[in-house]
Design a protein around this nucleic acid. Structure first.
Lengths: 134, 134
DNA sequence: CTGCACCCTGGATCCAGGTCCAGAGTCAAG
DNA sequence: CTTGACTCTGGACCTGGATCCAGGGTGCAG
């Protein structure tokens, strides 16, 4: 039989036990049942669900996002799932653009800095000290 | 005379008053002096320093990083400032690469999803439900 | 001198996503 | 039966970077 303890579930999904209980508190994952002792029991459904959560997190979804995704996948609403993925993609692209802006700024400063000599000649310090230019 | 209250300083640097006091508690910015009443007073040195902090933050430096940068710029250690900027650049590039990896994954899934029909045909749900491949 | 905007302190709260703990109960191998 | 590994609960704590609050004091224009 494929009944798992919380420790086995956690190990097979690659998360910490405390994380499983945390997800339960936050309505992301409910045990299939409990033993008379109160011990949680999980089946393959829960294992898949937990792995889904882990992968979605790796794709940059927040737990709120994931709760919504899980509800949608329960409803099998493919169109809405696709739209959610598109929104997340747009969000990721914004974050990339912002980091690229920062990278450009740093790159320029580093390239222009001789790396020795007077502080006044260091464009990094100057850039950080300079007045606004819009 | 160029003596500023905390409110004037905050406004001219574009941060909140609470943020100025927060920076003080965290050893980033000390008032030039105090009135008999205890009111903080700031000069142009502090205004420049606060603007430095704001810009460095916009470049992705943490407050810990910034504390170190400020110490270095006080010591006028240009070589070390350059190295710190290079480390931060490497860090930003790592973050960009990670986001690009995520973007690639999402992009592939979205492109392959018809956006309608059976849940089984949705590669987004499938990808999140699939077993590991690596 | 009144009124209102401003400032003071210390501490609480927030966000996300967990992590850790104490004290008690349970399961299973030997 | 013993022992050690596992699990239970509820709640405290963590990071980073603020933000907000209560209850009081101050500065200054009219």
């Amino acid at each position: 039989m494929t009944s798992l303890s919380i420790g086995q579930l956690a190990e097979q999904a690659g998360v910490a036990i405390d994380t499983v209980r945390y997800y339960e508190r936050n309505d992301l994952l409910t045990p299939a049942g409990r033993l008379a002792s109160g011990y949680r029991r999980y089946g393959t459904t829960e294992l898949k669900r937990l792995r889904f959560i882990r992968r979605a997190k790796a794709l940059g979804f927040s737990l709120d996002d994931i709760r919504a995704l899980l509800a949608l996948s329960d409803e099998r609403d493919v169109a809405e799932v696709k739209r959610a993925a598109q929104r997340k993609l747009a969000d990721i692209e914004l974050r990339i653009a912002e980091l690229e802006r920062i990278r450009g700024g740093l790159h320029t400063l580093i390239a222009a800095c001789p790396g020795h000599g007077r502080a006044e000649a260091c464009p990094i310090l100057n850039a950080l000290t300079q007045e606004e230019s819009a």
